[in-house]
């Protein structure tokens, strides 16, 4: 079954979608969008490291992303604002990574495939790494769900209920690093943040509770991934960006639709009032 590259690509994108979307809800709720973006940028340094040391890509990207996230978290509030720190750390590691890659002689590197992903080149091992990472993230988020939610609402409220908000933050940071590391092959460094944020943002108007929002966003992400994959095959376009395009299209359409429904029901309400008058 996994002999076909399209089947492998489909499974890879679904794996990333399932892990990224629920985590993306927390990224939105905690206003960490820039944090996710910065972590993804730092991944370029991880790519350079893996090429230099010929270490596995997953491990070195995970390591660098994790280090970056921990550095930023620990320096936060010590004289610098969060977004300043993220700007400094993420762009520096992106730049250092790009420079380091240019020093590598002998290997011809297709940088584009790292920046925008190369989902059609996903092999059996990649698929295993992607699903392994995705399952770990989903399990972590599901296991810590209450604590994560409560410390997102208010850290003191979490403490009073016996959850340590710092530990929950650490779990989110680890999960984010894992998602970045597994998503590189699928959508690339520059578009990972979109996989996190767009499905979650699309799910918001349909959701009454955080759980519904997580499930709906995961479903939307899977639909966007499979449709994007199909569209890129039909139109012969780069797959990662096509998936993100479909995701963005869903976001725009659902927002237009909810506005339309709201204004129609408002008009009905007004009409009923007129009639009763």
């Amino acid at each position: 079954m996994f002999d076909d590259f399209l089947v492998r690509a489909a499974f890879a994108s679904v794996g990333v979608a399932l892990a990224a979307a629920p985590l993306g809800c927390f990224v939105i709720w905690r206003r960490m969008a820039y944090f996710g973006d910065a972590t993804a940028h730092a991944a370029v340094l991880g790519i350079a490291l893996s090429l230099t040391l010929s270490a596995p890509l997953f491990v070195s990207v995970l390591g660098v992303c994790f280090l970056m996230a921990m550095t930023v978290s620990s320096l936060n509030g010590k004289g610098f604002a969060m977004d300043t720190l993220l700007g400094v750390v993420s762009h520096s590691s992106l730049a250092v990574g790009l420079v380091a890659v240019s020093f590598l002689s002998g290997v011809r590197i297709d940088l584009m495939s790292y920046l925008f992903g190369d989902i059609l080149a996903v092999g059996r091992t990649d698929l295993m790494v992607i699903w392994g990472g995705a399952l770990v993230v989903v399990a972590l988020v599901a296991w810590r769900w209450s604590g994560l939610l409560l410390s997102t609402l208010n850290p003191d409220l979490a403490l009073a209920s016996g959850f340590n908000p710092k530990r929950e933050q650490f779990i989110l940071t680890v999960s984010l690093a894992i998602v970045v590391a597994v998503a590189i092959k699928v959508v690339g460094v520059l578009l990972i943040a979109a996989m996190l944020i767009v499905p979650a943002a699309t799910a918001r108007p349909f959701s009454r509770t955080p759980e519904i929002m997580a499930v709906v966003s995961a479903c939307l992400a899977v639909v966007a991934s499979l449709t994007g994959l199909r569209a890129s095959y039909v139109f012969d376009t780069p797959t990662g960006p096509t998936i993100v395009c479909v995701s963005a299209f869903l976001f725009v359409m659902t927002n237009l639709m909810t506005r339309l429904i709201r204004s129609v029901s408002l008009r009905k309400l007004l009409k009923r009032d007129e009639l009763s008058l």
């Binding site: 939105i28 709720w29 206003r31 209450s146 604590g147 939610l149 409560l150 997102t152 609402l153 208010n154 003191d156 409220l157 009073a160 209920s161 959850f163 918001r204 959701s207 009454r208 509770t209 955080p210 759980e211 519904i212 929002m213």
Partner: peptide
């Protein structure tokens, strides 16, 4: 066993939460 009522609690509008769900957190 502490019950805590904070001074102010701002719930971000991006986070959907019914009163029932909030009461059951942790559940």
């Amino acid at each position: 066993k502490v019950g805590y009522v904070p001074q102010k609690l701002h719930i971000d509008e991006t986070l959907p939460m019914t009163v029932k769900r909030f009461m059951n957190l942790p559940g």
